[in-house]
Design a protein around this nucleic acid. Structure first.
Lengths: 303, 303
DNA sequence: CCCTACCCCCAAGCCTCGCTTATGCTGGAG
DNA sequence: CTCCAGCATAAGCGAGGCTTGGGGGTAGGG
């Protein structure tokens, strides 16, 4: 088995025409070069160098080996450079999958910051809800899945999130829920309310997991919400509230980029949060570009 | 520094999708594979493999490395094969330089035998007299120099051959000298003669070194030859003898492929030989094709 | 539901390999 | 003729790799 290290030395010996000179170039001692060349000739099965007192010449086999060595070593350094570029964030691609409402403010800010910090990296974005995004993560279709969870639900039913325990879960943002009531509602002017204050209102719920969470929180407040409408689409929720059809509890982030028409937000007490987390595989978390993107997500959320 | 051994393992892991399977393919244990991959990731500076419980996947850096590994390993095996072909006498070129009269019978026979034994090897032939052929050998212009020497001259003046002492000298043939006398000469019928019998004849000498030898041998026999003609060209010597201009002492080999016209050969006593030797450099002697050609020369001389 | 088989990681021990230092030898230059 | 540069060799040491043995986790089958 010919070793790349031997080829590197052979090429240097051929170039300089001397073991000592090659050793100096390679930063080692002359006997090291001598031994490597002996080992290479051993594994080649034929002499590669002709030791004539004056200069070091190549045999035909030596010439053949040097000829191949050029290409092999070039390929090797190309490989090292490409890997070093990925490791040094001068290249690399991260595929990010986010839940729909996360893509609006958090992800764009993080993407912009990532581009500013590491312009040569590429980040692609897809949208998928958590069960699907986790599957994509496990299937190798993405490196980071942005998802959310509700601490209250996790405490009440730990098995619902049990499929995350072999993932790296990076908390990104605690997204506080705010109440949304129609304009003119009795609570619209107060600016603050407890969940119990809305016990008799018709509710408009979000996605299935949000709905489960809403029920859980309301039951902790002592009532079971009457849910008249449920939709995955947050703008639709806002529209329904604005039409006076009920009240809702929405994460602040969903309201960051829109101005609800015909509805007012009220502070909800006690504070309840939707926890936005970035998920990845343990091995992927150690990939520089993935780690950098996680940092950027965390950083973007801090603002 | 990425090592070829690591790339080989990585490629196998990528192909089989498992450390254990790769270990079986490579004929080692699974921890060995595991350790090599850890070392490779260490030197790469980024994870290369994603350990998902079920299967082993590549990161982007891993994919890049495998992509390069294909070419690198292909180049490596190509290099190994080419060297192995040279070592295994399935390829290789030998440049042979012979003195002019050696090319007539010995060399053609050896070349034919070499082609028969190792058809894929190539032997080229050039002609040069010993001082020049030795220089070519030292300059790297040939691998084997066929030359001759006279033991009597070597004993009398060792410094004349002192520039061969760092060469490999392979005796090929002891080429006995025969006398050549004109037809009708008083010794032509006897078939045998001592040097002293020709003390009073005019002599025709060959090349300078042959001439020196002739003088040396004749002086040992008690006389100094009267040399009327000297020429490097053996056919010319034969012609001169045939014309009755003198006698000569010629190596048998020079008469092997010609029939002297107007001259007769006589056995010379005591036996005197021109020693034909093949010269090469110590390192070159270990090159298989060179060694084989030396063997073929020796073999051809035995017939 | 348990059990088995498979696969990976980890730790320890051993061994081999490669490097360095030191020394000897040879050839060429001043 | 002496000095210097270069290669080879031997000894010693340190590192690295491979193996064995054991543990944990997961998927598939009884």
């Amino acid at each position: 088995m010919i070793e790349a290290r031997h080829l590197r030395v052979l090429r240097e010996v051929a170039r300089t025409g001397s073991f000592s000179a090659a050793a100096r170039e390679l930063g080692c001692t002359q006997p090291a070069v001598s031994q490597q060349m002996k080992a290479l000739e051993q594994s080649a099965g034929t002499p590669l160098l002709i030791r004539t007192g004056r200069e070091m010449r190549l045999t035909q086999a030596g010439e053949a080996l040097v000829r191949h060595a050029v290409g092999i070593l070039a390929g090797l350094t190309a490989a090292e450079e490409e890997v070093a570029a990925i490791a040094g964030l001068r290249a690399g691609r991260v595929r990010l999958v986010s839940f729909p409402s996360g893509s609006s403010t958090l992800v764009p800010a993080a993407l912009a910051a990532m581009r500013a910090a590491h312009p040569r990296t590429r980040v692609s974005l897809d949208e998928a809800e958590p069960p699907r995004s986790i599957e994509m993560l496990r299937n190798g279709d993405c490196e980071i899945a942005l998802a959310f969870r509700y601490p209250e639900v996790r405490a009440a039913a730990p098995e619902a999130c049990s499929d995350w325990d072999d993932l790296v879960v990076r908390p990104v943002l605690a997204d506080r829920l705010v109440g949304l009531v129609p304009e003119g509602h009795r609570l619209a002017a107060t600016g603050s309310a407890a969940f119990g204050d809305l016990a008799d209102e018709p509710w408009i719920a979000g996605c299935p997991r949000c709905r489960t969470h809403l029920v859980e929180v309301c039951e902790r407040a002592g009532f079971t919400p009457r849910i008249d409408f449920a939709t995955d689409d947050y703008p639709a929720v806002i529209g329904l509230v604005g039409a006076g059809l009920g009240v809702a509890a929405l994460p602040e982030l969903t309201l960051a980029s829109v101005r609800p028409k015909g509805a007012r937000t009220v502070r909800l007490e006690p504070a309840v949060h939707r926890e936005i987390v970035a998920l990845t595989l343990p091995d992927l978390a150690r990939v520089p570009a993935v780690g950098a993107m996680l940092d950027q997500l965390e950083c973007a959320a801090a603002r």
